[in-house]
């Protein structure tokens, strides 16, 4: 058998899998989105219908806030952990990356334990001020949950990037008169730029699509994955849920594509 045919033959399983489990369902999803009573306008409804639009905006804002805060916290922590050696450092890093092992439902559960009706914070505030502070089921609880699973991923990326920083660059900037803040602003942060873009894009896409945590916590608020779930299972509104799914996919994909064109490196989408 000629070599060329053999290569094509090897690609066959991949092609079959791609078509059967990826392209076909995707195509079907897009078609379904346009099969509702409004037809193609069903897609427009995502943006026009107040409830859908509010959810969409909520979700994007929540994901954006999560990304920004995660980047700030993870950069400060990652830089410190990479640059300093102290007893217990390895344990601390292991603990910080521990949430990677938890599914979203468990993260949601942890937030309830912390800030739910019987939660730790509520207990404490009740004893101190006579008022129960409960925010687990608000957007703030969701935000906290998202932070909890975003930070470990980003910290690891930042730490790897900090390790690769040329210390000589910082020393050179200092020799030219730059103080600690100027060194961060002019040398360190620009050098970490690609890492910010890459890990930030993943954090954003993950927060956009996170379901487990939202399912556990989002009783008072709607985020996009929850909306899709309710439209699909409870309202049996296939067309709308398909349209919303396509919308969610496009936003997350666009952010990743944007990040990729900025950093030029490979940014993998995360579930």
């Amino acid at each position: 058998m000629p070599h060329r045919y053999f290569v094509w033959l090897c690609l066959l399983p991949l092609a079959v899998l791609t078509v059967a489990f990826f392209l076909l369902p995707m195509a079907r999803l897009v078609v379904t989105g346009a099969e509702g009573p409004q037809g193609l306008a069903g897609y427009l409804a995502i943006l026009v219908e107040p409830r859908y639009r509010a959810t969409l905006i909520n979700t994007v804002l929540l994901a954006a806030a999560t990304t920004v805060v995660t980047l700030v916290v993870a950069t400060v922590a990652g830089m410190f952990l990479q640059r300093h050696r102290f007893p217990g450092r390895a344990v601390l890093i292991a603990m910080l990356t521990f949430p990677l092992a938890f599914p979203g439902v468990v993260v949601g559960f942890l937030i309830i334990l912390l800030a739910g009706r019987q939660g730790l914070i509520g207990d404490l505030s009740n004893r101190m001020f006579g008022e129960k502070l409960v925010f687990a089921y608000s957007i703030f609880g969701l935000f906290l949950g998202y932070l909890y699973f975003s930070i470990p991923r980003v910290i690891l990326t930042i730490m790897a990037a900090v390790q690769k920083l040329d210390v000589g660059l910082e020393e050179a900037a200092r020799s030219l008169g730059a103080g600690p803040w100027a060194v961060q602003r002019d040398v360190v942060l620009p050098a970490l730029g690609p890492a910010f873009v890459a890990s930030g894009a993943i954090a954003f896409a993950t927060a956009m699509g996170a379901f487990g945590t939202a399912f556990t916590l989002a009783t008072n608020i709607d985020v996009l994955p929850m909306l899709i779930y309710t439209e699909f299972t409870l309202a049996a509104n296939f067309a709308t849920s398909a349209a919303l799914s396509v919308g969610l996919g496009i936003i997350a994909w666009a952010i990743l594509a944007l990040a990729r064109s900025f950093s030029g490196s490979t940014v993998a989408a995360a579930g």
């Binding site: 000589g168 020393e171 002019d186 040398v187 620009p190 050098a191 730029g193």
Partner: peptide
């Protein structure tokens, strides 16, 4: 107020 030249040159890539 020292001027320093490093072996790797340490020029700012940005």
């Amino acid at each position: 107020n020292v001027g320093m030249v490093f072996q790797s040159y340490a020029l700012f890539p940005n």
